[in-house]
Design a protein around this nucleic acid. Sequence first.
DNA 1: GGCCAATAGTTTGTGCCCCAACTATTGTTA
DNA 2: TAACAATAGTTGGGGCACAAACTATTGGCC
Lengths: 143, 143
Amino acid sequence: MRDQNPLALEQQVCFALSVAARSVVAIYRPLLEPMGLTHPQYLVMLALWGESPLTQRRLSELLALDPGTLSPLLKRLEAIGYLRRERDPADERSLAITLTDSGRELRAEALKIPPAVVARLGLPIEDLQRLHGALTQVIAAAS
Amino acid sequence: MRDQNPLALEQQVCFALSVAARSVVAIYRPLLEPMGLTHPQYLVMLALWGESPLTQRRLSELLALDPGTLSPLLKRLEAIGYLRRERDPADERSLAITLTDSGRELRAEALKIPPAVVARLGLPIEDLQRLHGALTQVIAAAS
DNA sequence: GGCCAATAGTTTGTGCCCCAACTATTGTTA
DNA sequence: TAACAATAGTTGGGGCACAAACTATTGGCC
């Protein structure tokens, strides 16, 4: 029999979600550390490897991140030389975020990350894909 | 056909996990705000409603939280009157965390939260249970 | 053209998260 | 029993996350 207490910690989805997110990010930490990246910074790089330049606003949408979070984060990535932040001459409000050569070259290193994480987790790819689908549903439902 | 790029942002489980966790916590925010709680503080209260007193160390294990995170968080909960922090006379290193009457009474209010969240998400309970199982697997795999 | 609303970013404040260094207490062992 | 190791918690630093207040630019409209 399941615990009937609706406030039981162990059966809260929000708790499992928080712990899982932190646990998985913790797996990335030692892998990203040699590249000088945190996990949120890694996600920014993924977005830029997919398309560069991007406006900061577009990045903010893609990553579902507050502008107030993204702004200093991008400054750090600029400081370590992975990207440039330049105002769009056609619209001085907008910031164009562009990969530098150094940022582009980092992608080769990053290719090792996903297989390393999957190996470390030791879960079947199909399970991870199913999980990804379920999470996508939750994200859509929460929006 | 799936995107074959292993670094595609949209198919990273870690990204879906981060966004889903933030999105779901965002649903709790307005519900917890009247009680004066943040989501991590709510999780502490769930643990204490399950068992009180608890040592800070035990809480740290239950919530998978760093002592350095938990320590100030518990001070805030003490400041708003939901719990007491007292050294164990038998072992002065240990902190006993005990619900106050006010903290105990809060549980009645909190009973409204899970159904409100489930309603807001609008997903079938079975889906949420499946998701919880998958997340539990990931947490175990990551440990 | 001049006012006004909308838009893009920035800054500040509060809190979470982890790490590393630290203090204080307790347990172990030569 | 005196040294030493282990344990519990605290503190400070760097970074993330979000809200609210702010600046600067742009677009629409009289």
